[in-house]
Design a binder for these strands. Structure first.
Length: 271
DNA sequence: CATTGTCCCAGC
DNA sequence: GCTGGGACA
């Protein structure tokens, strides 16, 4: 395999994880602008997680609840449990273990934080390839998958129309990507693009299992290394996954501040 | 007091 | 080993 494309790596990131944990506990909070905050006394407490509905109102992490309520008057606020005067996150840690257990059925997991895990899918992809020999990949196995850089050659006119319907563009891009792959799969000489795609099929299954067994939704990135998988994960959130083919990396890097790349966000990002 | 907590790593 | 800084959520 070509240098830099030896592995298939995924990064799975739970969508506003603390909010989802609170929503599972209290279903009345579901589908509402909602935050999780800690420490009530100063300006209503500090926000540490924000639902996507609340983000639409401009509510951000690290805001004070009092300020967020100005932006979003009907904001629902869940509180972090406190024990001996300290914020107690064990509740979220336990939920994290539930998720890790489901994901571990599919691959060896490297836990990166309470709501993120990396996984090396290289051998799982090889196994899947055996079952897929002389078949092709059904787009229905990739209903939540974006391919970064696809569709190619979209005119400006098409592009603006597609902004109105992200799903149309996603589906067109996926079809175009799949038709660029070899017509039938073989175990010997399997292009890295096919390997990424089979990785994405596995991640679709894994994410469906996580939602079925825990109720939690997540996003994911599939690429050839951890840094690119993490970057890909952020491209289509929430509840979606993104393949980042190596050939799409140069254009993506041109259009992205380097501070978006892991470990280049702080001091180095300001150069 | 008013960003808190956690993890990782370099330097000692 | 311990600690402080840096990065992230």
């Amino acid at each position: 395999m070509e240098y830099g494309k030896e592995r298939v790596v995924a990064l799975v990131d739970m969508d506003c994880f603390y909010v989802q944990v609170e929503q599972r506990l209290n279903p009345a909070l579901k589908n509402k602008p909602c935050v999780v905050a800690q420490y009530k006394t100063w300006k209503g407490g500090g926000i540490i997680a924000v639902s996507y509905e609340a983000r639409d109102h401009g509510v951000k992490r690290n805001m004070w609840v009092a300020d967020a309520k100005k932006l979003c008057p009907d904001l629902e606020v869940a509180r972090v449990r406190e024990s001996h005067g300290k914020a107690d996150l064990t509740h979220y840690r336990e939920a994290s273990v539930e998720v890790i257990e489901v994901m571990s059925r599919f691959a060896v997991i490297e836990r990166a934080s309470i709501d993120e895990a990396y996984m090396d899918l290289t051998s799982a992809v090889q196994e899947r390839l055996k079952d897929m020999t002389n078949k092709q990949i059904d787009p229905n196995l990739l209903r939540n998958t974006y391919v970064q850089g696809f569709p190619q050659n979209a005119s400006d006119e098409q592009e603006s129309a597609q902004e109105l319907n992200k799903e149309v563009e996603r589906s067109r891009g996926l079809e175009q990507w799949l038709s660029s792959l070899p017509a039938t799969l073989t175990t010997d000489q399997c292009p890295s693009e096919v390997q990424l795609t089979l990785g994405a099929v596995i991640v679709e299954e894994m994410r469906a299992a996580v939602e079925k067994d825990t109720g939690f939704r997540c996003s994911a990135g599939i690429a050839h290394n951890k840094v690119l998988a993490k970057l890909a994960c952020g491209l289509n959130k929430p509840n979606r996954q993104t393949i980042l083919p190596m050939d799409s990396v140069p254009e993506l890097f041109n259009s992205l501040p380097i501070s978006k790349i892991r470990n280049l966000g702080g001091k180095l990002g300001n150069l």
